[in-house]
């Protein structure tokens, strides 16, 4: 599911950027740093849509770098166990198939004849999270789940 949430991050900025464009520099660095990343807790950060607040900077001892706490509004994609969603089949093999729902990959095992590029409705039954990725296991064996449309049929 996609969410619109406020996240916070401490941004370090080199003193050479201090000046009129400090805010712009901070925002563009924030976008570069966090857009496209993934954390187990908040999921994939798809896009930053606004800056809520930039706090007072604190000078770090010894380096001259300044740390600003920045609160920003962003669109994240976070899959949940038990969630039902639609996805596109990207690969089929002997064990099952892989489907994609936005940035996340979902593996579904043990299928009956499914084609690449089909659209399926599936339920997430497990998630595996590491530092930079979320991977899901899904099923299509339940009421109202399964293939919605396949490329040959349409």
């Amino acid at each position: 599911m996609f969410f619109h949430i406020v996240l916070e991050r401490n941004m370090q900025l080199h003193p050479r950027h201090f000046g009129r464009e400090l805010r712009e520099k901070l925002v563009s660095k924030l976008m570069k740093d966090v857009e496209g990343t993934c954390s187990g807790r908040h999921g994939f950060v798809v896009a930053i849509t606004g800056i809520e607040d930039i706090g007072k900077g604190i000078i770090r001892d010894g380096t001259g770098f300044v740390t600003f706490p920045v609160k920003y509004l962003c669109v994240v994609f976070r899959p949940f166990k038990g969630e039902i969603l639609e996805a596109t089949v990207t690969m089929v093999n002997k064990m099952g198939f892989f489907a994609e729902a936005g940035p996340v990959q979902i593996f579904v095992s043990n299928h009956v004849k499914i084609q690449k590029d089909s659209e399926v409705r599936l339920k997430i039954i497990g998630t595996r999270v590491n530092a930079t990725e979320i991977f899901c296991i899904g099923t299509i064996k339940d009421d109202f789940l399964g293939v919605i449309s396949d490329p040959a049929g349409s």
């Binding site: 996609f2 857009e35 496209g36 990343t37 993934c38 994939f44 950060v45 798809v46 896009a47 669109v75 994609f77 994609e100 936005g102 940035p103």
Partner: peptide, 8 residues
């Protein structure tokens, strides 16, 4: 744009 953005 990131890959995550594009895919989403």
């Amino acid at each position: 744009v990131s890959q995550v953005f594009e895919k989403s």
